[in-house]
């Protein structure tokens, strides 16, 4: 086995190169060029970390906009991402969706708009920071009522928070729920 020793030495050298030098170089360069992003795009208010631009948070208070259902345990557990993995033929999925629809209806019985699909389906990561604009608008009436605010103001706020498709083409229009709720809190 004349190849063993060279293989071992080469593996060691390549480990130093690709396993150490490379990630350290990326870390260093990222720290220089994109310090905020590299650390997790945290949102800070007065020295307190309130969350991350990129990580959703759980909301159940009717005064806040609610995010998508999360399959992590507990919901929006950013230390253990997970999807539901329920298949379309699984009765458990149908039950869960039905329950979510019921909860949403109960939260705003007079709302006759169709419930957007993303509000009743779990995201892939369980940490999805976004909902669709339709999902945000659907909640406007409830939030305005709970906060005793004018519906139009809330709607305008949502409108201002809609992120369009990148370059008008890629991805989907969306609203960052944490950002929206922070803006909502700041509104008064």
């Amino acid at each position: 086995m004349r190849h063993i020793l060279p293989a071992l030495r080469l593996l060691l050298l390549l480990t130093l190169l690709t396993g150490l030098a490379y990630p350290l170089a990326v870390t260093g360069l990222a720290k220089l060029a994109f310090p905020r992003q590299a650390e997790g795009s945290r949102i800070e208010r007065g020295g307190r970390v309130l969350g991350s631009d990129l990580i959703g948070q759980p909301f159940s208070d009717p005064r806040y906009f609610w995010p998508r259902p999360s399959a992590t345990s507990p919901a929006y557990n950013a230390a253990a991402s997970s999807g539901s993995n329920l298949g379309p033929s699984n009765a458990a999925l149908h039950t869960a969706v039905a329950e979510r629809i019921a909860t949403l209806h109960a939260s705003d019985p007079d709302n006759s708009l169709p419930i957007p699909m993303d509000l009743v389906t779990a995201s892939a990561s369980g940490l999805d920071p976004h909902v669709s604009p339709e999902a945000a608008f659907w909640q406007v009436a409830r939030v305005a009522r709970a906060r005793g605010m004018d519906e139009t103001r809330v709607r305008d706020l949502v409108q201002s928070q809609v992120e369009p498709r990148t370059l008008g083409l890629f991805g989907e229009p969306r609203v960052n729920v944490l950002r929206l709720n922070l803006a909502l809190d700041e509104l008064r």
């Binding site: 590299a38 309130l50 909301f59």
Partner: peptide, 15 residues
Amino acid sequence: VVQTFRGAAEAQVLD
């Protein structure tokens, strides 16, 4: 995309 050796971050949740 994160690139840090600092371990998990902690955030106060809003709700």
